[in-house]
């Protein structure tokens, strides 16, 4: 239970209601610093809603989402305005349906993610246009960082192509690289393996492991592909109907009858047996 000792993300009593529909009900969990934490659950369990609350798309009805920085201070994400969640709290995310800037080039997608540092270096553009200040140096560094990521995701040859022209798997990798260009402490990935073939899925695992190893970024991911979840995650949180039904290491989760029941459903004659097992 090392995630309880040094959590990067501390979600407490999170509730999200849409009118009468309760999408998340009193959810509390922690994600450890440097861990890969997986958020799993059947369709409609509220996983993406949790992500939307963390990244400021929704204002939670109740509850607290705290991001703990390495220096011990914390920021309450539900109180920050949209762009500060990335800029100040250092949380980045990707989407289930890819949201690249498809009309911009691959390189530009990575440079946009470094907008704030470039804006500061260029004196909000005005000094930069006049050639004053460290804009050139900052721009060079931004391109170097983008190049590093393009090499890492194996897209360096396509840097000047429109992002929308890339094949699906490459777009997924680019979206992760773009999120990493914002230099996040916590990277939230919404189904990064969806639609990938087994080979691409394997590459993705390597990429995620190397992000954690080389950059120390903590990862929170939603995933349906159990091979990805079981292979790389340190900690799994299982949701069903907006509540947490299980929380533990992958091997603990694998054998939890509540999880099996939630995923596979239970035959009528087994209900009593399952109830006995879970002690209900």
């Amino acid at each position: 239970m090392r995630w309880l000792k040094d959590p990067i993300l501390d979600v407490q009593h999170l509730t999200m209601r849409f009118g009468g529909l309760v999408a998340i009900n009193d959810l509390s969990f922690m994600a450890g610093r440097g861990d890969i934490t997986a958020l799993i659950g059947p369709n409609g369990a509220g996983k993406t809603t949790v992500f939307n609350c963390i990244t400021g798309f929704y204002k939670p009805t109740e509850g607290m989402i705290a991001l703990r920085k390495p220096d011990g201070s914390h920021m309450l994400l539900e109180r920050l305005p949209g762009f500060s969640i990335n800029w100040k709290a250092k949380v980045a995310r990707t989407f289930q349906n890819i949201r690249l800037f498809s009309g911009m080039t691959v390189l530009e997608n990575l440079l946009v993610a470094q907008h704030n540092s470039l804006m500061i270096a260029s004196g909000f553009t005005f000094l930069g246009v006049l050639g004053i200040g460290g804009y050139r140096k900052a721009e060079r560094e931004a391109i170097e960082r983008a190049t590093y990521w393009l090499e890492k995701i194996d897209l360096i040859d396509r840097a000047d192509d429109p992002a929308g022209d890339l094949p699906y798997g490459a777009q997924r990798r680019l979206e992760i690289a773009r999120a990493m260009c914002t230099d996040p402490l916590l990277l939230c990935l919404d189904e990064p393996a969806a639609g990938l073939n087994p080979r691409e899925s394997l590459l993705l695992n390597e990429l995620l492991l190397s992000i954690r190893k080389d950059h120390g970024t903590s990862i929170l991911l939603i995933e349906h592909d159990m091979s990805v979840v079981m292979e790389i995650s340190d900690h799994v949180v299982v949701l069903d109907y907006g509540t947490k039904i299980s929380d533990g290491t992958p091997s603990e989760i694998r054998n939890d009858p509540r999880v099996i029941a939630a995923y596979l459903g239970v035959a009528d004659e087994e209900i009593e047996q399952v109830e006995a097992e879970i002690g209900a």
Partner: peptide, 25 residues
Amino acid sequence: KTSLGRAQRACEQDRKMAALLGIDV
């Protein structure tokens, strides 16, 4: 060519995504 222009084009395409990359929309 400038970062401001890139941010503008990004906001044109997807304002919410731009905000998630730290751009003050």
